[in-house]
Amino acid sequence: MISFQNVSKIYYSSVNSYPITALKDVSFIVEPKEFVSIVGRSGAGKTTLVKLLIGEERITEGEIFFRNKNIARIKSNELQKIRKKIGVVYQDYRLLFSKTVYENVSYILEVMGFSDQDIARDVSRILGIVRLRERAKNFPEELSGGEQQRLVIARALVHQPEIVIADEPTGNLDPYNTFEIINLFKKINESGTTVILATHDKRIIDGLAKRVITLEAGRLIRDEQGGKFIL
């Protein structure tokens, strides 16, 4: 479903004159319905990997395929189509601060052209799951850090995407909420959604017993089924 082929990413920062290699020669394939965790220390390149996959950053070398479409080569409206099939939990949230909790979640459905009744039903359901229904009319600024994170998760899941990519989705959650969210990911995975989870939370990985890809300084150093969190 997703295939990275010898992908490298070098950031040419405009301020610093020296380039930063964030990913180096990374190759792997994610099959449909898989649950893949990506681990690595801070700065290992996890977020970069996510950004390349959704076409937010340009690939320096190599190729990424979604189904059999080359992400770097397709037209922008094709890319927008693919993006609608992916639900992303951004590490830095990327909430729409001028929209309410409800509208943050409903926006993607409005983009996809759902009817108003369907939107009302789906949004209310997902807000119930992440326990934000009472905050539906609040603005993101009025939420706690953990609540904001749960909102991002709700937004990533509401349109039932084919793939969910979660970049450190539990960084701001207490152990109880973390447990709940990971269970939620497991559940949607069981119902057929592909899940890619980037994290540096050892307890999550060891509890999952699923495939783990380990990055170190931009290189893929380990890729094993039922993998453990080893850095």
Binding site: E56, S76, Q80, R83, R94, L96, V111, M112, R155
Partner: peptide, 18 residues
């Protein structure tokens, strides 16, 4: 002041005209 939101909207797949 809306530039962050604009890029986020793009990332969830909204068309330019939307």
């Amino acid at each position: 002041t809306s530039k962050e939101e604009i890029s986020t909207m793009q990332l969830v797949g909204a068309s330019n005209w939307f």
